[in-house]
Design a protein around this nucleic acid. Structure first.
Lengths: 185, 185, 185, 185
DNA sequence: CATTAATCGAGACGGTACGTCAGGTCTTTCT
DNA sequence: AGAAAGACCTGACGTACCGTCTCGATTAATG
């Protein structure tokens, strides 16, 4: 791990962006404020990232692990419940709020959408679908199950409650959700 | 219908906002641009709406009917499929894009969220849940069905594909979706 | 004289520009610094003047009187000497330095040149030539005298010493100069 | 003439500066642009000249000969007219414009003024004054003639028309000028 | 001949200023 | 009096150059 000055500067910028987001939300995150907080010239920021969103997307790299990883430890059903609980936890955290703010941003800015999908969402979907397929192969799920749609429904319900309906979302919801729409084998 | 000058001005402002949205998307919609396009002073706009989002929300009033109404013409299942198809159609239209853009905006601006929910989303959820309850009462749906969660899953899947996963969404998806997660009676 | 707020703001901007020029010279005069010093938004400055030079040109309006006026009190020769002394005095003053700095600026910026000529230089030349013509009519100057060229030589010598040769220029020079090239009647 | 790589690089830089000046004027000449055009690192430029003006001053070395040389071939009067014509020609050329641009620059930057005077202007004045003195010695000019002031007036008129009054200046002006202010012997 | 020293290119860096845009507020003007 | 018009301050935008700096990669001269 070389810890070059370049690396350090990039880290300072990402940290600054993250701090400002924590304090003032996405609208408060401006290139100007990031540069000042990081003790860096504005040009230096622009030299490395084209937009504030890009900085935050990078800053989320490690923190978004729970979104992407998918447990494979028990039955499919248990694993799915566990994963949904993890996502619910995430959505309740500051990291989750940042992630959701960027999702919102992606509606206006295609680049943000592309970056998010390439970095997190695509992997997440793949991991989830893969887990379901294994479940089907093991006979835990009906063979006629459409994994893609099951994922849409499960994750969709979460995003929907948080982004659209603004309805409370707690860990207990995970079981209720899975119980409700689980395809009987 | 009085058609007072005040009414006319408000209409001009809403039309201007809508036109600009159509041409340049939500980021292009600024109070400044609206005022110019409507041929009106910026103060006049501010006197009637606090934000550009508020203008658009009002401008959507009539156009968002398909989101809110829920058919009650055939079996629950048929009605649900029909409604989902209507929403998919909406999401493909300019009106739908405006609506989704406002959903995104609501992540940063609580007022937008509140307005959207009070005006459209709450009614939509209620109408949907009501329809499902009738279905349960008629024995078309298992009595243990949780209507709220079913709605979360159905609508959620749509929003998820459009807002998050950016995956194609066509009318055919409606049947696939309902087939997949429909609770057997 | 209404002393409207608009007038006051403009005065504050001009004063600020002038102060900064006095302290740091023309390169130190930036739109940014003017706005700050005047306690005014940068946009307000831009709304009224397109460039810093334009502000200074306006700020010189009253101060540049000695450049433009031409005495008509004694003989032509005495009046010419008096006027040249006035210009020499001017060149030694802060106002003169500002004026010369703008002359220099005009080499790069045609607008500055045009403004300076329309406001000051043209009038100055006219007044001078007029005075000489009167002298010719009164028989104080040879009838074959070319007033334009005489003015070029007299004023030219001053500008040349100050701008080009950087050679000392004091009041005594006025007499020496006139004595040297005065066309005998 | 060794034509070392060092020499070649310096030449490339000067050429680049000159080309850019020709295309975009002095404001377009930036250290950055020079370095790029010369295919050289910015550091290399800075290592050899402190400012862009210094580069241009050096680049003018050979081209400014007509400003400095003074003919001594006919009568003083003829030589003076010839020299003034040469300067008028120069002022009409690209080289002249560069020279005048640097004169203007010298108002803000003392170093430029010093360099110009040490390299060109002082020599020019000396040569001119010398020529006049010879004329006085030969009885071609009145002994009471003040050569310095005569030079101020003659050259001054030219600079004045070009820099200040922005009045046309052609070869014919040379004779008119000399005829007007020539001190009768 | 090998090593040292100088010089080069490349380009990142902290800065300053640019000129513009939009946000909201506040004053003036008119009806 | 009450609405419309538009000037105003604020703050962020993204860009251009500034002059300094570190970093290897070449060259050149020296030991």
């Amino acid at each position: 791990m070389p810890e070059s000055p370049r690396t350090r500067t990039s880290a300072r910028i990402q940290d600054a962006a993250w701090e400002i987001f924590s304090e003032r939300g996405l609208p408060g995150v401006t290139m100007e404020a990031i540069a000042i907080r990081a003790g860096v010239a504005k040009t230096t920021v622009y030299r490395r990232w084209p937009t504030k969103s890009a900085i935050l997307i990078d800053a989320l790299k490690e923190r978004l692990a729970p979104l992407v990883k998918f447990p494979q430890e028990g039955t499919v059903r248990d694993d799915v419940v566990a994963q949904i609980e993890a996502v619910i936890d995430l959505f309740g955290s500051r990291t989750g709020r940042a992630y959701l703010a960027l999702i919102a941003e992606s509606v206006h800015d295609p680049d943000v959408g592309t970056a998010l999908r390439e970095r997190y969402i695509a992997d997440q979907r793949e991991a989830a679908i893969l887990r379901l397929r294994i479940g089907i192969d093991h006979g835990e799920l009906a063979s006629r199950t459409d994994p893609e749609i099951l994922i849409d429904s499960l994750y969709g319900a979460l995003y929907y409650r948080v982004l659209v309906a603004h309805v409370p979302l707690d860990r207990a919801y995970a079981t209720r959700l899975v119980d409700s729409i689980w395809p009987v084998a």
